[in-house]
Simulated assay, not measured.
Amino acid sequence: MSQLHANCVQIGDYALLLRGPSGSGKSSISLRLIDAGGFLIADDRTDLVARDGRLIATSPATIAGLCEVRGLGIVRGLPQRPEGDVRVVIDLVDDPDLVERMPHGTSEEICGISVARWTLCATDLALEAKIRVALALATGELRLES
């Protein structure tokens, strides 16, 4: 088992990890994705394990069901799931110049499972849509033109 400083949200059948330093917007972005129909798996820390060739995410027991909403406090009761099948990692940056315009798809190995990885700007106005596209690319619902 491994633990990452990341949020995990499920959209449809699959989950994604939002990774970035403290204050990068992981919880705010998670909240927007949940508000649009997603489910919280974990906020701030995510436990990960390989199971049947898939990367499975859960929340540490001490913070399960909790989400820190900056300006409001720690909230319980958001739509949640106990675990998620992670298909993509989104690394958040605060400078749009750090996001490649036409990146080559990359992946990262976590717990022996290869997972698609993308870098996106936390302040991008289309961030939630781009996250949904990244997840669709990772699950094969969409394809990149080569």
Score class of each variant (00 low, 15 high):
H5R: 01
H5P: 09
H5E: 01
N7C: 11
C8K: 03
C8R: 07
Q10W: 01
I11K: 01
G12N: 00
G12E: 00
D13K: 13
L17F: 04
L18T: 09
R19E: 15
R19V: 13
R19S: 13
G20A: 06
G23I: 04
G25D: 13
I29R: 05
L33I: 02
I34M: 06
D35T: 14
G37D: 03
F39G: 02
L40T: 06
L40R: 06
I41P: 06
I41W: 08
A42G: 11
D44C: 10
T46M: 11
T46R: 11
T46F: 01
D47A: 12
L48T: 04
L48Q: 12
V49K: 14
G53E: 03
G53S: 08
R54Q: 15
I56L: 13
A57C: 06
A57N: 07
T58S: 15
S59D: 12
P60E: 01
P60G: 13
P60M: 02
I63G: 10
A64I: 04
A64P: 02
A64C: 09
A64M: 08
G65W: 03
L66C: 08
L66Q: 14
C67H: 08
C67I: 15
V69N: 02
V69C: 10
G71L: 05
V75Y: 12
R76I: 07
R76Q: 15
G77M: 01
Q80P: 00
R81F: 01
R81M: 06
G84T: 01
G84E: 01
R87N: 09
V89T: 08
D91E: 15
V93K: 02
V93R: 04
D94Y: 02
D95V: 07
D97R: 14
V99L: 08
V99Q: 10
V99D: 12
T106E: 15
E108R: 14
E109R: 09
C111E: 15
S114H: 07
S114T: 08
S114R: 13
S114L: 09
A116S: 14
R117P: 00
W118D: 00
W118H: 12
C121W: 08
C121S: 09
C121L: 03
T123C: 05
L125N: 12
L125M: 08
L127S: 10
L127N: 09
E128T: 15
I131L: 00
A136N: 11
L137P: 02
E141G: 13
R143I: 04
S146R: 14
